[in-house]
Design a protein around this nucleic acid. Structure first.
Lengths: 128, 128, 128, 128
DNA sequence: GTGGTCTAGACCACT
DNA sequence: GTGGTCTAGACCACG
């Protein structure tokens, strides 16, 4: 359900935050569902509990999950809310990317063409 | 020609690398043209010469510029070559982004629509 | 009569203490009236009896209720006494808050104005 | 400039966050001014650098300060912006307090009277 | 020297 | 057993 890519240059806790956000956005984790405990997830991924704790803290202050002392961590957002938040995040990144693309002369037609090609690639991947 | 945004969270040397790459891709800096010396640029931007040196090193190992001992640093790529390199880089990032978008249910139509909207926004900005 | 908000970050026993204090201060629970038994209340709220026990202990050491072995827990304070205790508590918190407010430049007039606005909001809420 | 109250039940990092917020709100720390380094402040207060780091992280994600790797942490908000943020925070707490006060029968007149008394106390304290 | 991340291990409050 | 905080010490990237 959650894997860590040690080659990824981003910090581990950030990878976990993103992964769980996706699971919530994708509706795999439903509102009020309990997440694996800090210690259990730490064992599974064989990383330090503090790192999980940090990821969960970030998710909590982002309003995606809520914590109850002595009980556990739970999903707080509906899948729809999470999707909206995620969309905002992705479209912000897309904006940055297009600014860059534009600054070195890549035009809309070419950019959109590339999008189509990539989406098609994804579709085929699924079809396998 | 080159400005630094100290509030940008990315390292300074990375900002410089990006900016010079853009200038080459945009044809502002032409092949075999000499770049400002490490010391001069450091003075202009009032930052540590080590930082400039690092940026130039990265640009060199990316094949965008070449250094001649005792003479200076020079542009090695043609505008077109730089553009191609840049495109590869941007399209790789775009790929990652689309994988993410897809994984939380954003479909091609919506994604492309957002691209169009952003490009339009850029166009208006220029028109000012 | 008593409800628990699981999304509230405060411990459950504290919510119960506060709620019962309010009921006493508001005169809903009268002196020498019997409170629901630990087990019964635990069943009603479907939480651990230990948690109720802890709440009752705190209430007892605060002098708000008293326990009789084998019989149950009873209200000890009159509504007026409870109100006084409550007032002391609230005004202590208010003091802290005003110290903070003052330290960042909020003056009495503005503070009192805000109080009035909030009280008005409450009044409207009741009017519904 | 910053002191820690070990009797305070709140975590240390939270005390630091609040204290620095106040200093920014009060205009003592001005925009773009550099804060003491993580290690230095840790030494001064004789607490672990990680705890300071945590406080600074929270301040950063709240937009009150910004960090530059290798350089330090700097105030980002103007004193006015900080004041507004702080006001919102305090008035939220005030709201909670008034809800409590109201629920046990403290009326607006009495509440405001108490505010006046407290503010007067503060004034006298300063006059000394 | 500076911030950022991670590990290891401890203690506390709560259920 | 669960989350939350803190300490101690390490390593990396940056300037």
């Amino acid at each position: 359900m959650i894997t860590i890519d040690y080659k990824d240059r981003r910090p581990i806790y950030e990878q976990i935050v993103e992964r769980i956000s996706q699971l919530v956005a994708g509706g795999v984790l439903k509102p009020d569902e309990q997440l694996p405990s800090v210690r259990q997830l730490a064992l599974e991924l064989s990383i330090n509990p503090n790192t999980i704790q940090r990821a969960y803290s970030e998710l909590e202050s982002a309003g995606i999950i809520y914590a109850q002392k002595g009980k556990g961590n739970f999903v707080s957002l509906s899948s729809d809310d999470a999707k909206k938040g995620f969309k905002r995040l992705i479209f912000t990144k897309l904006n940055d990317l297009i600014v860059q693309a534009d600054s070195c002369g890549i035009e809309q037609a070419e950019f959109v063409g590339e999008c189509a090609r990539i989406y098609q690639g994804l579709g085929e991947g699924k079809g396998k």
